[in-house]
Amino acid sequence: MLRTILHRLLQTLIVVFVLVSFTFIAVRLIPGNPFADEKAMQPHLRERVAEPFGLNASYPEQFGLYWKNILTKGDFGLSTSLFGRSVNEIIAHSFPISLTLGIFAMIIALLIGIPSGVLAALRKNSMIDYGSMIFAMAGICVPAFVLGPLLQLWIARNFDSLNVAGWERPSDILLPAFTLGVGVAAYVARLTRGGMLDILSQDYIRTARAKGVPTFTILRRHALRPALLPTVTFLGPAFAAIITGSFVVETVFQVPGMGQHFITAVTSKDYFLLQGIVLFYGVLMGGANLLVDIALAAMNPRLREGS
């Protein structure tokens, strides 16, 4: 177990380093520079603007300075597109918003996905099964950028208590979180159904049935935990899917989260903001995968004994 954790930590470190280095190089090799918006800026003026950002040094020096500032001072630099606000401040402000949205979406995904997957497996080849699998397929084929606008049109406009877009009232989280969660719920339902069918055909479940154990008890005591292993394994990639989805959902519903900042940072070549957000995403994904590893080991004794 300890080895798995160390392995995952090492992997995360490497991934984050490679990812940030790639971003660092890519964003500097894209023609133009962060101050290109101010048209016809005099070169000497540009140099003076670039000075506080440390952008006049050579690339290797900038690279070294960037990591030094992060490791010694925890300083991620200044945003060039947002009037020199610090990247730390921007992330500290926008990350909680994205996190709340992501957690809500994940809860919705699990609340819809697991029960419908279990039901589909219990009533295999019934209307419930077909219904939930069609729903799952719809969740995959009707992506967030279609579902989001449709929900705005059909639901938000017909309920006074719901805003079409924005992030002011607590109820503003409902539609974006649902839009984001449904796509993940689809995969969760499919995986849960598959895992459940696998377990339900095992001998020990048949034995329990033969003994007359009620179905619900079989599920709770014997089937659910091993059947959910594929679903839990998927939660790592699901986290990545929620990040991707947040780019779309935050755009549709005007949520001021990290996804929106990422898109602006790319289009305005905001060096430090982009590097900071990518670094943050890398760390988050590593953390999510680590949690999944631990959860899997906790659920599956065979994994624990193996290491």
Binding site: L19, F22, A26, G32, V266
Partner: peptide
């Protein structure tokens, strides 16, 4: 495996930005 551990969409976005102006030129 290492490349698969990277967030796909972010890498694709950055890479597209990186090459698109060059392709146009």
């Amino acid at each position: 495996d290492g490349l698969l551990a990277m967030p796909f969409i972010i890498i694709v976005i950055l890479f597209r930005e990186l090459i698109s102006a060059r392709v146009e030129i």
